[in-house]
């Protein structure tokens, strides 16, 4: 068992319940820096709840109770996410999250990227525009939208909207990234683009990704966490001996 000392995310005995019914039970694992960890499991197994427990987003739902410990490494220090003194808003601004379905604001493309920067980080003006162009370029959207930045974000295609959501999160320069099936509702090309970006970011940005795609999991994961009915049901590491066979066995038991 890892100690969690240097882990980017350390989860210990995590139990999350809604109206007294557990969605995640006694889950413990670490996400190490430079490692892309993918959570897999059937629909309704508690993957998204597990992901939302890291940035305390489950608290937005009524009747949610969380037990156990979640610690994240931010600015070189370990922060207990559920300690009484922890500010959930600051935690969420440093632990970025991209949701399964694109949820752009019903405002212009550029304002989708500028407003969060202004409100969350206090960055405005030319500095915010530079960051906007950089993240749009990172997600491969700059060429597609540079002439229509003031148009409503809702006019973009589903794949473009999801990349915009990823860019919006990246613009806040998070220290940890949580992605809940980021390519579930996008086309093949967008999916490929997002996967390439995640692989490029992984060495410097710790990531916890929920995925339903076996191909994507195989391509991305340094480590796989299998969740079944809210509990940890198996693990896989790319560096383990006989990794290919172990991967197949884990995934066949998952689905």
């Amino acid at each position: 068992m890892e100690t969690g000392m240097n882990a980017a995310i350390s989860i210990r005995d995590l139990t999350v319940s809604f109206q007294g019914k557990p969605a995640v039970s006694e889950v413990s694992f670490d996400v190490m820096p430079g490692e892309l960890t993918v959570v897999v499991g059937r629909s309704g197994s508690g993957k998204s709840t597990l992901l939302r427990a890291v940035n305390r987003l489950n608290e937005c739902f009524e009747g949610c109770e969380t037990d156990g410990r979640v610690a994240v490494r931010l600015a070189g220090k370990t922060l207990d996410a559920y300690a009484p003194g922890t500010d959930p808003e600051r935690l969420r601004s440093r632990v970025g999250m991209v949701f399964q379905t694109p949820n752009v604001l019903p405002i212009s493309i550029e304002r989708n990227l500028l407003l969060p920067q202004k409100l969350v980080r206090g960055v405005d003006g030319a500095g915010a525009r530079d960051i906007m162009e950089r993240v749009l370029d990172d997600v491969g959207l700059l060429d597609e939208v540079k002439d229509r930045l003031r148009q409503p974000a809702a006019t973009l295609s589903g794949g473009q909207q999801q990349r915009l959501c990823l860019a919006r999160t990246m613009a806040l320069e998070p220290e940890i990234l949580l992605l809940d099936e980021p390519t579930a509702s996008v086309d093949y090309r967008s999916s490929e683009h997002i996967e390439r970006l995640l692989l490029r970011l992984a060495p410097t940005l710790p990531m916890l990704v929920v995925s339903h795609s076996l191909g994507q999991t195989r391509a991305l994961a340094d480590r796989v966490i299998l969740i079944r009915e809210g509990s940890l049901a198996g693990e896989w590491r790319r560096t383990s001996p006989d990794a290919d066979t172990a991967f197949d066995e884990l995934l066949s038991s998952a689905f």
Binding site: L57, C60, E89, L91, R92, S93, M97, F99, T169
Partner: peptide, 13 residues
Amino acid sequence: DDLRLMGAGLGFS
């Protein structure tokens, strides 16, 4: 609810 979750997810108060 997605709108509320998005704001909270971005770190909005």
